[in-house]
Design a protein around this nucleic acid. Structure first.
Lengths: 197, 197
DNA sequence: ATAAAAAGTTAAACTAGATTAACATGATTT
DNA sequence: AAATCATGTTAATCTAGTTTAACTTTTTAT
């Protein structure tokens, strides 16, 4: 299974660094393939997050339940992206977030216990992860900027343009949560956008 | 100069990885010490950001000027932290942010042209930067969560508790900008907090 | 096919925070 | 010491987005 599915991961990694055949084999021998059903949790708030996961197919949401029991979605992860509670993973302390599948989702999982060995055996992976985390950090900073320099409507239009494929696959109330607004207000925004042209 | 000032940087790095004496010397021979005056810019919106900077002393703000000419502060960096426009640095494209000193500030600068050589010569640095960027990413995600699950007053109280030292050093209108509110509203929040007890 | 549950819509009343504007205090320069 | 400029305050008015609640549409399960 991992042989067959692993190629997608290798292709992805090789966009950043070039692994030798031996390194590729070693890597695939250390990671785990797993499929989750829609609704299943990869991480639950309070768990110790044991895995960094590469998404082969499907979609997950990373969310936070606040004091009033309200869910706030922090990110979606689709094919060719990563999912985990990074904070919990790197410190091995209880997770702040839930990671839940909103479609049937296939993952390749890097466990905490083996990732250090992998870094030692394949130093290029350290570079690879540094690069993708740098990109994730930059994206996260840009999201903060958008959250205070754009109105809700502008953020929605930005989201729709940036992630046209995601929008089709996700219920609207989750998009509202990701944008930091209520589902009612998103509904209003959408009807305004329609009547605008 | 770098000999004398560099020890702070080495101490910081050695909290994450252990460098040999030779690696320490090589590192210090490749980086640059520089002092900026209050008000000077390290990066200006539109520049290509050439340096990742470690802050030895002083304080910088990283901010964004929006379409209406409003400044939005994305982060402050003080002693023992980093400053740059990471997005511009990693892609060598024009910066979205200004990085400006709000005090006299001493830096150690890692230039884009030498950092790749350093990674090659000292692979441990790759690990070091991976680790600090992971931490920065986690902090950035947490800030997004706070921005939509806390009120302005709660965010201010959080900031005050989290960064008591920074608050004293920074004009209030910059704190308001960082919190994503107007200076007038922060003023109101402060007077409410005083009358509350 | 039907019922039940989940997701989306609309509209009225409300509130956190913005805007405007006038004033107060403090710091810097001459 | 006065003048200027940057920073901070207060209060009235306004608005983007929330809340509540009733209703409609779509999806899922039986």
């Amino acid at each position: 299974m991992i042989k067959e599915k692993g190629q997608l991961l290798l292709d992805y990694i090789n966009r950043y660094v070039s692994l030798t055949k031996e390194e590729e084999e070693l890597l695939l021998s250390k990671v785990t393939y797993r499929a989750y059903l829609k609704g299943q949790f990869i991480v639950q708030q309070g768990d110790i997050c044991k895995y960094e996961c590469f998404v082969l197919s499907g979609c997950t949401k990373t969310s936070y339940i606040d004091g009033e029991g309200q869910e706030h979605i922090v990110m979606f992860s689709i094919e060719d992206w990563w999912t985990a509670d990074m904070g919990s993973f790197i410190t091995q302390t209880p997770a702040d977030y839930n990671v839940q599948c909103i479609e049937k989702t296939e993952l390749i999982m890097f466990s905490y216990d083996i990732i250090e060995d992998l870094y030692t055996a394949i130093p290029k992976l350290e570079r690879f992860f540094r690069q993708i985390i740098q990109k994730a950090f930059v994206a996260s900073q840009k999201r903060i900027v958008r959250s205070f320099s754009l109105s809700a409507k502008e953020r929605y239009v930005y989201f729709r343009n940036q992630y046209p494929k995601i929008e089709q696959r996700i219920p609207q109330y989750m998009i509202a949560s990701y944008l930091g607004i209520t589902k009612e207000f998103l509904s209003k925004i959408k009807s305004e956008l329609i009547s605008e042209q």
